[in-house]
Design a binder for these strands. Structure first.
Lengths: 199, 199
DNA sequence: TGTACATCAGTGAACGCGCGTTCACTGATGTAC
DNA sequence: TGTACATCAGTGAACGCGCGTTCACTGATGTAC
């Protein structure tokens, strides 16, 4: 947002996405509305119509931006020259750390209630995020590598594991036992099965 | 709902929970409201106040009932006399099948936006559900069983795996590849690492 | 067995609120000549 | 370089809607005597 305001904003589309994400991080889904986001962007609540057909389209664009940040998070922690297992561990930790640091955004990215999950831009961004785990887990050799679809099973296992861990962690279910007592903090990598790579 | 209606309903509390769950299954979270549930129960929308302080309390009671059904689902598929690995596989499949057959209820049960996750009744019901997996994965011996918190790590791995698999499955992300092509259908048990039991 | 009365669990109208959307409008910008 | 004009991207008021909540009320039930 520039200090010298003009009648025309200049970059309202991106500003709406950015302010929407900021509002989401602060207050969660329940605090988001077209009016609140427009107000934060310093614009009347009818202005977004020029850039997004409806609220759902704005949420979808926010989710796509979420995936881009998600990819960046995973890539940021990836050591350049390291063993593949070390890279996999880094990517898994990045996945979970993103979810933990941006719980509301993480939830938005998987919410069919709020986003159009079939949107092309969202699909593209999501595919790139998924691709990070996919690449690293290709050729991952574990107990059932002889069974069909070895690579698919490996990437599905890794993805389920990090995704479930992230969700449960965000629900507070990994830090407190059913009886209410505190649990020792586990990392997602404490919970990956043993494996090696075929190649 | 009885056919001969009286002024006093007789079992409105349970009816509200049941009709709320029915509405949730049919239309998802966005179709739920106090007014809609009351109308479904054949009662004015002020009547629920006598049984639930607010909407959140009703949602929380619905989620608790969800956990009870969740437990029943997992237990229903458990073979009485079978190896522990076979029991674990059955419980995992029950967990995922529940989520797939009741996606909206499953989402409600983990939603801090809608439910009071600290509610005593909800905690009790949730602990029993968690307990099923916990019991079966106690003593599960996998690659890192010598490391600390072996049992905690085992149950966390199993839980993360089934939970993540269920979530991703419900988001449609396990049936369609990033490029849009169809994927072979995997079961959650295709994705569990090898293990044996210590005892 | 009948009556009085407190309590419980409903009714239905009204309230205020925030929402997304619509609409006539207007200021700013870019282009043609 | 100046003017006319189309187009773009805003404004702000108004709309209707569904929501949860409140409130005075009333019918049904249970209990005391």
């Amino acid at each position: 947002m520039t200090t010298s305001r003009t009648y025309h904003h200049g970059d309202l589309r991106n500003t709406l996405i950015a302010e929407g994400l900021a509002l989401l991080e602060e207050g969660g889904v329940s605090k988001m509305s077209l009016r609140a986001i427009a107000a934060r962007a310093g614009v009347s609540h009818a202005a977004p119509k020029n850039h997004f057909a409806n609220l759902r389209a704005l949420y979808t664009a926010m989710a796509a931006e979420g995936y881009r940040r998600h990819v960046a998070f995973m890539r940021a922690g990836l050591p350049k020259r390291a063993s593949r297992p070390a890279k996999l561990a880094a990517a898994m930790r990045g996945y979970v750390r993103f979810a933990q640091e941006h719980p509301h955004l993480f939830a938005l990215m998987f919410s069919s209630d709020l986003c159009d999950l079939d949107d092309a831009e969202l699909q593209t961004a999501g595919a790139e995020s998924y691709g990070v785990l996919r690449e690293i887990s290709a050729g991952l050799d574990w107990d059932k590598a002889d069974k069909p679809h070895a690579d698919l099973r490996a990437e599905t296992m890794i993805w389920s594991l990090v995704h479930g861990f992230a969700q449960l962690s965000n629900s507070g279910m990994l830090s407190t036992a059913p009886d209410g007592s505190a649990l020792p903090a586990l990392s997602v990598t404490d919970v990956v099965p043993a494996f090696k790579y075929r190649s």
